[in-house]
Design a protein around this nucleic acid. Structure first.
Lengths: 190, 190
DNA sequence: CTGAGACTAGACAGGTCTGTCTGGTAGCGT
DNA sequence: ACGCTACCAGACAGACCTGTCTAGTCTCAG
């Protein structure tokens, strides 16, 4: 699916404004709590324009998830460090940094999944796709670092990642930060 | 807050039916996706009766969260094993068992928190309360087992718990089960 | 110049949401 | 017998939801 990676030759500022506004509101308040009317009002876009670009609200949600995914992939690309091990640590350090920020409201993928029970739903599929990418990123970095059990350790890192994003949202950020650090130490040292 | 622990001398079957139905639907489909009308219809209760027992939907959600908490506390009480260490393992084994079940849809606390952004909201406070109880349970069991760093390890176990409940919902259960086992091994052995 | 398409403004339909209200029945303690 | 409380059935208000539609503006390629 190369839907969000330069598919459309015309960027369409209105569409971008809708997606940007939707991302901000969905993340801050949840998908079902934010209506189309509010999105188009804050984006300064007519309703017909919205439905010209997105066939339904669900498709907007799917686009929101896909856009979050590409944003995160781009962010990780900027974190590439000298060694795979350092890159891995930079990724988790970044998540901790982000999770300690003011507007943090948890992981958009996990939060949105909570509002879409059906695993076969397109939104859920988009979420699953990003999870696979995350896990593969961890595995590749571990393997490049010469880790003897990259596959299983990647699964563990995904589990730590999930605990991290939930913890920063629900618990005391400095404590979670220290907990993540300690967990990574115990999990990565053999 | 002793609201759910034998406060009312009259159990009120109608109230219990509402709470039971709400718990089932909220868990399976999410809080905002399930309306009052549907709950009272499936519970076989009049609307006036519902609003006689619960002042608002938000209060029903709070009661749902509180009830989930007491249910989990009761469940843990039945898992007490010979040693604290075995009890701890039984708790995580039970979560894995439950997470592998057919109707599993993630953690009601985490899922509901995703729909209530405001940390000051009563629902979020009830969720925070249960998280404190979980962390304290881990800490007490670790301390009773003679663990040298019960406090920090309890934080880690809470993080593992969060990763566990998310993973069983979004990923392949058998894989997550093995991952949890391996994570606990790496995290608990010093 | 012409026509296609992106855009704005806003009415509208049909449904669902929470919460209130009326009206009436049944059990139970005193 | 009386009154309190729990309970049922369902209408109703007012707001909000998604999605469609009309009507008209503006830009730009050909």
């Amino acid at each position: 699916m190369t839907a969000e990676t330069a598919k459309d030759p015309r960027p369409s500022p209105a569409r971008a404004r809708v997606l940007e506004t939707a991302a901000r509101l969905f993340y801050a308040e949840g998908v079902h709590s934010v209506g189309i009317d509010r999105i188009i009002a804050e984006a300064g876009v007519a309703k017909a324009t919205f439905y010209h670009h997105f066939p339904s609200k669900d498709e907007l949600v799917r686009a929101y998830i896909a856009e979050q995914g590409s944003t995160q992939r781009a962010m990780v690309a900027t974190l590439r460090a000298a060694s795979p091990r350092e890159t891995l640590e930079a990724v988790f350090a970044f998540m901790c940094e982000f999770g300690s920020g003011a507007g943090y409201r948890g992981c958009p993928f996990v939060n949105t999944a909570a509002e879409y029970p059906d695993p076969a739903h397109p939104v859920r599929r988009a979420i699953a796709e990003h999870r696979r990418w995350s896990r593969d990123l961890y595995r590749d970095l571990l393997a490049a670092d010469g880790h003897p059990d990259a596959e299983r350790t990647a699964d563990i890192l995904l589990l730590v990642r999930d605990g991290l994003v939930v913890g920063f949202d629900l618990d005391d950020p400095p404590t979670v930060r220290a907990t993540v650090q300690e967990t990574l130490t115990r999990v990565l040292t053999l």
